[in-house]
Nucleic acid binder design. Sequence first.
DNA 1: ATATTGCAAATTGGATCCAAAAAACAGATG
DNA 2: CATCTGTTTTTTGGATCCAATTTGCAATAT
Lengths: 228, 228
Amino acid sequence: MKVNATDIGQMASASDVIFDALREAIARGDVKEGQVLRQDHIARMFNVSRIPVREALTRLEEQGLVSTQRYRGAVVASLSIDEVREIFEFRALLEPEVLRHSIARISDEALAEAATYAEAFGTEHDSAKWGDLNRQFHYTLYREAGRPYYLQTISAALDRVDRYLRAQLVLTDGMERARREHEGILRACVARDADLAAELTRAHILGASQSLVAFLERTRKENGEALV
Amino acid sequence: MKVNATDIGQMASASDVIFDALREAIARGDVKEGQVLRQDHIARMFNVSRIPVREALTRLEEQGLVSTQRYRGAVVASLSIDEVREIFEFRALLEPEVLRHSIARISDEALAEAATYAEAFGTEHDSAKWGDLNRQFHYTLYREAGRPYYLQTISAALDRVDRYLRAQLVLTDGMERARREHEGILRACVARDADLAAELTRAHILGASQSLVAFLERTRKENGEALV
DNA sequence: ATATTGCAAATTGGATCCAAAAAACAGATG
DNA sequence: CATCTGTTTTTTGGATCCAATTTGCAATAT
């Protein structure tokens, strides 16, 4: 039998759809930190009852993207500068390691795909898309590491800091520098130089962290509170 | 005003209680992998409706401890040997790093506490308690690293492999070896030798991994399926 | 004016109810 | 006997309803 079968058992439930939508909105910064997420409001947006919304919010809290107080609702979690620094340090430990394993077995196709993302990242004028392209570039390089657990963990960490990362690209000199560093990483990957690629990735992440932390320290001193 | 105030806003909801109970039961191996978790059954056990149970199961799935198929319920997740290996490798990357940071600032009290756990671990005859003591020993050493995100991640990883770790202690020569290695790690910590302590921790984890993977390969070949 | 108290509105956590899907079963058919 | 088919039972996902708690506000007292 030859039909285009899709596994219906894996189809997304209402809760899945809402969870994904909210996660993306929070990661991208479309809903600001500190904002309260009203169950009823979200339920009406998706035309469902509050039950699947609550499930989605529960999952978001488990991921650390929102924090909840009993009877008070969920608010988009905000990160202290220390937390931002820690998560970047965490990424700087994991990502080079994954890239190292990936390079051993990465296909030419994946390298070409990464190259197109790096290229698009460099030429894209709409700053709102930089974050996605940046993420896709790195993810393409990591994908074939054969380390699904690492990838999941990295992805969760990225979700937590994504909106800061985007701010760093847009609001500082981050963009131009990231473009250069991506090229370097890609070259090292093409040359299958795992040590160099790993070290460049590490520096890439830690450099972004430094620039971002400096930026946050400046703006938070002025504004008292977070704005991202 | 001087009353023994507890933050009622942080009090555990029904869903919290159920989540914690199930998480521990799964991590400790009290419910076997592959076992289906019926919402109604659990609800009756805790004398609640299925709603908070479903929330708990959702959170467990988010943590990877159960896997769900739509309309088919939640099953305690089982790990392939590759996944076990990956998670141990992951721990072997993170934990030495955390210990390194912790040693810089660890108090004598914490060291003494860790020593009592190591001692208790060595003398405890009830093998069911080894897993807890082992975990407490390491956690006490990591606690003051000032890296809450790392600790959370490590804890989640441990939850995933805890029952295998326990099996490794009980079903192989793991216990005696772990006792020795704990002593070595503790000595290095007392001497504030971060490099040595980190390296010993790394070897400790990778050694346990090797022994465990060998054990799993033997037993799974015989039994076809997982039994832990 | 400021702080305090009492009450109404809003919001959440949980219980109950219902529809959709899967699993178990029984009878029919080869 | 094995297999297929239709039906019943079980179980889940979601909607609706209710009680507990917080929040906003007005009235009162200081």
